[in-house]
Amino acid sequence: MADDFMKPRRKSGPIKLSTVGAWLVSLIFFLPIAWIIGSALKPKQYVLNFPPKWIFVPTLSNITEAISYGNTAKYFLDSVIYSFTAVALAILISFLAAYSFSRFKPAGTDFLMFLLLSSRFVPAAALVIPFFQLYNLVHLQDSFLGLILFYTMFSIPFSVWILKGFIDGVSTKFDETGFVYGASRLHVMFKLILPQLRPGLVAAFVFNIIFVWNEFLFNFQLGGIHSYGIPVGLFTSITKDGHLDWSFVASIGTIYVLPLAITIFAFQKYLLVGLTFGTVRGEV
């Protein structure tokens, strides 16, 4: 990244216009989210004011109220349970597959990788119908098991792609050295290769969790009152008690968006590989 060719020569001096521009762009993009956070912190009576009330004493009462209201806490807890269980399971079995694809290159590797990726590119609405029926048939609807199994599949394509990319990057000399010293395949895989995949594992873990958190349609259709997660909680927040309570919507939105923003801050360098399903790596 550190190239100087198109840059003004001088680095010191007054603040550069492009610096202001970059910050301005960032703030503009964040403004709608900031407005929601602001609305959540606004005392209830001001939220529908027009023109909007700009100066107010912020309060946490909307947020604490939203957390204790109805199923809010459960939605969040459910999402955490699904995402962590499903993603952990997906990464474990994806690692086995990725190692096989990378080292053994079984016939049809490319085709299988293609199928995995394309399964993630199909509009959710297209696959939700057969899932809906199959889940009814095997009584998996509105169950944790059903959703965890679905989200495991949901997380597999990205995990396989990213881990295969990282295993390809580890020289086969490591495997060979291991064998020379009499290590078993499994020992080589888990003790020699796995520890070197740390960035891939972190990216797969963080971004799959975000994807599962954000998944709406399947949770809505396959789940039920016992198993809804955050997006359904957001979706149903507009019909709380039969009327629209924007303080409540903004509060749930804030509880949802803040951890996400913090995650993006903490794992920024994995964002690229995360959002391209492990197909593109590089610096940003």
Binding site: F29, F30, I33, F235, L260, A261, T263, I264, F265, Q268
Partner: peptide
């Protein structure tokens, strides 16, 4: 960059 990138990881529902 965090401020800039947050909109794309927010679920469309939100």
């Amino acid at each position: 960059l965090t401020l800039l990138f947050t909109p794309m990881v927010v679920t469309p529902v939100a």
